[in-house]
Design a protein around this nucleic acid. Structure first.
Lengths: 192, 192
DNA sequence: CTTAATTCGTACATCGATGTACGAGTTGTG
DNA sequence: CACAACTCGTACATCGATGTACGAATTAAG
């Protein structure tokens, strides 16, 4: 319901502007959850009124941005080979997840603020399920610990990813090392 | 600069009201970073104008609340015996830290919003230093891993604590189990 | 009991952000 | 080319929260 998909016709430039707006929203909100509609319109190189022509409320815009971020993420993550050894697959998954999380860090905060409760989690169902499945397989293979529920382990991984993103933003963690540090931090936790 | 300490005289009821306001702020902001001055005044059983008589700006109030939360935390934490085996001490420290973090969860968010950048970290210096010292001792004792800096390990512990607080708020983690779960989650990360 | 401190209601000024209204200009599209 | 779709500026209405001004009633403290 965020992006008006089912309309009779739409001109090409409108389509293009919508895309630019959503991208700008994703970028700006990704680093500052309080970015205003004005900021976003400007960053998109578009008048504020044009923005309101496509997104009636700020909530609509935030939701569209979040869905776009998830779509991009899905594209990246779905191309990762998760077969075979669960632990090796997890390392590959983490390496790619790291960037995605870092880019959308505060977009989540913005979404939690304006979207109905539970909506964010709802939209995250697919990506979350992917990692949960992987952890479960690791547990079945005897590689990962079973004394804590898979859901909790996945949550912890997310919190560490977000933490790393925050540390990296504050320059306390060098960006190139981040993915590796996260992996080395998280693995012992999963193994137990 | 948050609480007007250095004033000629102050009546007992004023003192009492200030205490009630700060406590209310700590509680409300602990669960909702967007609580308004009005909310807080009401919760303290005090008129909004009285509140403004003691705290000129919202920022002053938030800072006072944060400092109070830290003071309470310091009282609790400083009574913990950290001597001897670092790992055993860490378990004791985590058990007490858990409650404190859960209570002030979103107070931090509120503070980050209104206080000058870096101020929050500055105020956290003391408690952070305590845990960093402990981790360092663990490293020297050969119990904790040394392939990652102590500062990062401490950060991770904080992120997991906050994560557990969030999960607990969303009822996905039973409160009584939380401390134990956190401990079992964090230890393997520290050991490596 | 006298005085000064304190409370606190009402009313108002301000500020930033959201969203609406109007309308003139611009540009894809068939 | 003609028309509808679209852009987008200005101006405005609104809303919630912050903070100020005034002043009367209350209350602690010596």
């Amino acid at each position: 319901m965020a992006a008006p998909e089912a309309r009779p016709r739409r001109r090409a430039d409108a389509e293009r502007n919508i895309a630019r707006i959503v991208t700008a929203a994703r970028t700006l909100l990704g680093s500052n959850p309080n970015a205003t509609t004005d900021d976003i319109a400007q960053a998109a190189g578009v008048g504020r009124m044009t923005l309101y022509g496509h997104f009636r409320t700020r909530a609509d815009l935030v939701e569209a941005a979040l869905m776009d971020a998830l779509r991009v993420g899905e594209e990246t993550l779905s191309s990762i080979d998760l077969s075979g050894d669960a632990d090796a697959a997890m390392i590959r998954l983490l390496a790619s997840s790291w960037r995605l999380v870092a880019e959308s860090a505060s977009l989540l905060t913005a979404a939690e603020d304006v979207l109905p409760p539970g909506r964010v989690r709802e939209l995250h169902a697919a990506p979350a399920e992917r990692m949960t499945e992987l952890v479960r397989r690791g547990q079945e293979q005897g590689v990962y610990r079973t004394d804590l529920p898979a859901e909790w382990l996945v949550s912890v991984v997310h919190y560490v990813l977000h933490g790393a993103a925050a540390e990296s933003r504050e320059k306390r963690l060098a960006a190139p090392d981040a993915a590796d540090v996260v992996t080395r931090t998280v693995r012992p936790m999963l193994i137990g």
